[in-house]
């Protein structure tokens, strides 16, 4: 991988230290700023995510959660600040290097974002088709395995338009894990699903973490889901992280902004527009 050469040459002690911190912090977001036209969406986000951890970012609609997660995979580049993944600042990587890195990511989109001109198995095997030399049969077999991992059988030949919302999300998840990623990003994984399907997706997210040993970032405003899947929860409001803590710490938080959000009240410092 080419990423390595971007690291500054360090003496051995330094290198060991860097390696040590890399082990702890897979993703480190520092002072991230992003504005669209005149709307300053992110105003200095700082957030660290440790290896193997599931970080859930909560926040209201339009609080910039999606913008934040899109920075982590290089869909957006920051106006200011940096995103460091495994010791590499990805905010100004060249496209080739970024793509090498992206092969270690998986992302589940809110609406699953399946390619509707391809069948289910072609969707799941998309990156294998693009980035490996495996034969069509091998890819199909792998796609089947991944689909089974998310609890789907016999849907390989269907088109995405023939699937229900929950199934689409599962296929999206199967596609995200097809390249055996180290980092999975979930954009509102339970939004738009009925409570039972939402819980099934939550279980899948937990299972993925256990089986693949991945680091995950999820953004959601579904508190049930957040409590269930999170190792840590971070609350994003007015462009900054207001508080980070374990689900229990968040439940006991005295911060009025966090309290209002997790109790789902329209009365408090957050104005419902």
């Amino acid at each position: 991988m080419k990423i390595g050469r971007l690291k500054p040459p360090l003496p051995r002690v330094g290198a060991t230290l860097v390696a040590y911190f890399q082990m702890i912090h897979v993703i480190e977001i520092v002072n991230l700023h992003k504005a669209f036209n005149k709307k300053h969406v992110l105003q200095g986000v700082d957030l660290q995510i440790e290896r193997g951890e599931t970080m859930v970012v909560i926040g209201g609609s339009g609080s910039g959660k999606s913008v934040l997660i899109k920075h982590v995979i290089g869909l957006l580049s920051p106006d200011e600040g940096s995103i460091v993944v495994d010791g590499v600042d990805i905010s100004h990587l060249r496209e080739n290097d970024m793509n090498e890195l992206r092969k270690r990511y998986g992302m589940l989109f809110q609406g699953a974002a399946l390619f509707d001109s391809l069948t289910v198995w072609e969707n799941v095997g998309f990156s294998l088709m693009q980035h490996t030399t495996l034969s069509k049969e091998e890819i199909k077999e792998k796609a089947k395995q991944k689909l089974e991992m998310v609890g789907l059988k016999g849907v390989e030949e269907l088109m995405p338009s023939e699937l229900s919302g929950g199934m689409r999300k599962r296929v999206g998840l199967a596609r995200a894990i097809a390249m055996e990623p180290q980092i999975i990003l979930y954009d509102e994984p339970t939004t738009g699903l009925d409570p039972i399907m939402a819980d099934a997706i939550n279980d899948l997210i937990i299972e993925m973490k256990k089986r693949l040993n991945v680091t995950s970032i999820a953004i959601t405003h579904d508190m049930v889901s957040a409590y269930k899947i999170a190792d840590k929860i971070a609350m994003l409001y007015e462009g900054r992280i207001q508080e980070v803590g374990t689900p229990d710490e968040i439940k006991r938080s005295v911060n009025p902004i966090v309290r209002q959000f997790i109790t789902g009240s329209s009365v408090g410092p957050i104005k419902a527009v």
Binding site: K70, I73, G74, L75, E95, N99, E100, R102, K103, Y105, G106, M107, F109, Q110, G111, A113, L114, F115, D116, F126, S127, Q130, H131, R175, L185
Partner: peptide
């Protein structure tokens, strides 16, 4: 349609230009 349903973003995340 691919843009508004995030399929183009999905392509990018799958390391495909």
């Amino acid at each position: 349609t691919m843009r508004v349903t995030e399929q183009i973003d999905a392509l990018v995340t799958l390391a495909t230009n």
